[in-house]
């Protein structure tokens, strides 16, 4: 469709920390062993793009940056209803921080040419910075609507609301624009059976996906390799340590009749030097 919108949705594969696999007893994650999933926040972004396309026409290009196994999230995105998936995969991308990641993804979006709307989730569950979206917008020189809750499209105008601390803002902007989609913006739908079936079928026959899933490297998207990876990242993780467990210091009341336990507990709290009884009405 010639007047349809060209939309990019940026998604990431993250470790599934709710799964026991690959999560060490001390709470750290063994990234190699951990089960992987599509970043939950990104599903809202993808769903929003699908809603827009279904109402307005257009094409959805999903981009993910990651190692070869991350192609799984692109397959999943097709199952949800995306049109095409691009894996930006290149060894030189390893250890990119948010600034370097934003540079690489910006190049990937440019590679797709004439994108009207870039959708991202609010943040990822592993990096958790919420920075990459706005940094891509900065590099592209386009406005962003972060924490976007509702949006309407008229021609190439987006009318949207964004959540701010203590309220909402109504905004209007001409495309191109980057939108980070709030979880409250859409109701997640299940994968459509027909899409799942098509993708599963296609996966058996690699050629059938050849016009839907693409792997591109830094050279293809014309990215400068010195601006990504360890070399191109202005930050490093210097040191990590476990968040101190205050284990054992909690005074737990249990076993006896609830009324009795509550009496003992409140008695104890009333003697506690942290003094909270002054707030009891």
């Amino acid at each position: 469709m010639s007047d349809g919108l060209r939309m990019a949705v940026l998604i990431k594969q993250v470790p599934d920390t709710s799964s026991a696999t690959g999560v060490n007893p001390d709470g750290t994650v063994d990234r190699a062993r951990a089960k992987k999933m599509i970043n939950p926040f990104d599903k809202f972004a993808l769903q929003k793009a699908i809603e827009v396309r279904n109402a307005r026409g257009g094409e959805i290009f999903v981009i993910s940056m990651g190692p070869p196994p991350a192609i799984a999230v692109l397959h999943e995105a097709l199952e949800y209803g995306a049109d095409k998936g691009y894996l930006l995969g290149d060894r030189r991308l390893a250890a990119s921080d948010t600034l370097a990641t934003a540079y690489a993804l910006y190049k990937a979006v440019l590679y797709l040419k004439d994108i009207d709307i870039i959708f991202t989730g609010l943040q990822t569950t592993d990096g958790d910075t919420a920075q990459t979206g706005p940094q891509i917008a900065e590099r592209m020189g386009v406005p962003q609507i972060s924490y976007c809750e509702t949006m309407e499209i008229e021609g190439k105008t987006v009318k949207a609301t964004r959540i701010i601390d203590g309220g909402v803002q109504r905004l209007e902007v001409e495309m191109p624009v980057l939108i980070t989609v709030a979880n409250s913006a859409v109701k997640l739908e299940h994968k459509r059976f027909a899409n799942v079936y098509k993708t599963k079928q296609a996966l058996r026959d690699k050629d059938a996906l050849a016009d839907k899933i693409f792997t591109v490297d830094l050279d293809e998207v014309e990215a400068d390799a010195t601006r990504v990876g360890l070399v191109g990242s202005p930050t490093v993780v210097g040191k990590t340590w476990k968040i101190g467990e205050k284990g054992g210091s909690c005074k737990v009341f249990k076993g006896a009749a609830p009324k009795h336990e509550v009496e003992l507990l409140v008695d104890e709290i009333s003697k506690d030097e942290r003094g909270v009884m002054e707030f009891v009405l």
């Binding site: 470790p15 920390t17 001390d26 709470g27 750290t28 994650v29 569950t125 592993d126 958790d128 930050t235 490093v236 993780v237 210097g238 040191k239 990590t240 340590w241 476990k242 968040i243």
Partner: peptide, 8 residues
């Protein structure tokens, strides 16, 4: 998602 603190 991990009970770690990191110094950046």
């Amino acid at each position: 998602g991990e009970s770690l603190k990191a110094r950046i």
